[in-house]
Design a binder for these strands. Structure first.
Lengths: 260, 260
DNA sequence: CTGATAGATTAGGTAAGACCATTTACCTCA
DNA sequence: TGAGGTAAATGGTCTTACCTAATCTATCAG
């Protein structure tokens, strides 16, 4: 108040300080809280499985309203960092984001941007041979069990849906056997997307099914034998053949509603 | 009320209908609204850039409270489907989820699960050669301009930060040139993660920088010449060499705090 | 007529409080 | 000791009010 610049009423000449301010952004309270909690969670401050303080407790701690606190928690939930349970002994329980979050985000991108089927197949051709290589190197016994299970399932003469599901399961099993969580997440997302896109396209006849079963078994063998080069080569051929078949039968079905 | 099963008071024998109910889930109101809006957005009901009705309008339309409506909108915002602006003529503006969302989700996974640096590099070795191949096939003039720009920037004798940034820019430019939005998203996410992980590791000396510049130029040339095979081969060597260098210098820095 | 300025208007952001719904802990009673 | 009911804790929803930000608009000075 005792300002020598007398910037107020009654003064004769109000001299203004030449303050220079850049446009500043005022973040939302809920974002601030969410960011803070996110950092702490990722830093490992809260062990997985434990619960954050209850909402009303966070309100008293932060001085924010419950609305704001709840929004922050909701953000973290959408990002897969907490899981919110109701009832007594409920709350926001810490969890690590899983391949799930990647898969759902990728699906949003695919649907939202109307990614071409060809792009999906290209991407698969890019990453799945590498999955096979790593699987051959890193596979453990239970990975082989899983692969064999999928092979059995796909060999059964079930419905188209069963076949496609077993197909996806095998490909995902290969990714899991690679023991690379990132590739695993990508493949999970990709497989689902390709699965849903392939669902109602009747190019899967008996021949295709037989060839698929044969390829899967051969690749599985290479993985079992830890023959990385063979696994890569066979997987390359397999996914490329599949892509060819899809493109051939399905040339015009590529989403041509318009590019983003 | 006129129930022949007289299941009420005053009856002699109350016979119970053998109803079979499976455990049922009661979704949250905000999720229901978010799901509905999300489907409509992805289906293309709302053109990109337009705004959803204001919150209070949605309240009257849905019969839900404003709290609930706001939570739903917040979910969509986190998922990158709308962008919320304040002030008059503000609102929830429709947008398509971009590579951004993938990148941030992947970063959450990497940090949350403490993905090993080796896994990041493996993944890059998997997908980047394919990016190069597609870039050689699909590149257009402006892609080449972008690549050249990055090459100039990286050749300048700037700080380490500048070098790493230009490095990332070039790799991203290759992904963009592939004209495969999915691979593009993956690479964006990967590049950032590798960038931040490499930041404070001083294995980037003058030799490494010179070799990097040389490789980038060579690969760029192959892409310009649309020599797909050469682009793939050179990219393979490049990223593999990089991975080797990182692993060599940085063997124990791999995050070994514990596996998930 | 033009430009600046002060309101009015419309949007989202935050707060406070009440109440509902769900789940679990706990206690009572047979 | 077990089964039932009751209470408590916690998230979910609704209501209301007010604040803040951005825009439009009318007004007034030049």
């Amino acid at each position: 108040m005792a300002d020598p610049a007398n910037a107020g009423a009654g003064g004769t000449e109000t001299t203004r300080m030449p303050v220079q301010l850049r446009p500043m952004q005022v973040p939302k309270a809920s974002d601030v809280l969410a960011d803070d909690l996110r950092e702490r969670i990722l830093k490992g401050d809260f062990p997985v499985g434990t619960a954050l303080p209850p909402e009303r407790e966070l309100v008293t701690q932060t001085g924010m309203s419950r609305t704001t606190v709840r929004e922050a928690l909701r953000i973290l939930e959408v990002q897969g960092l907490v899981r919110i349970k109701t009832g007594r002994a409920g709350g926001a329980f810490i969890q690590r984001p899983g391949e799930e979050s990647i898969a759902s985000t990728v699906n949003l991108l695919i649907r939202g941007r109307q990614i071409r089927m060809a792009a999906l197949l290209e991407t698969r051709e890019a990453i799945e041979p590498s999955c096979a290589r790593l699987a051959a190197v890193n596979r453990v016994e239970e990975d082989l069990v899983e692969l064999d299970r999928a092979n059995e399932a796909i060999a059964r003469d079930g419905s188209l849906t069963d076949f496609l599901q077993a197909n996806v399961d095998w490909h995902v099993a290969v990714a899991v056997a690679s023991h690379n969580e990132l590739l695993n997440g990508f493949m999970l997302a990709l497989s689902r997307a390709i699965y849903t896109s392939t669902d109602n396209q009747g190019f899967v006849d008996a021949d295709v099914r037989r060839a698929t079963v044969h390829s899967h078994v051969a690749i599985t063998d290479a993985i079992r034998d830890q023959d990385a080069e063979s696994a890569v080569r066979r997987m390359q051929r397999h996914v490329h053949a599949y892509a060819e078949a899809v493109v051939q039968v399905d040339d015009r079905t590529a989403i041509d509603v318009g590019e983003a």
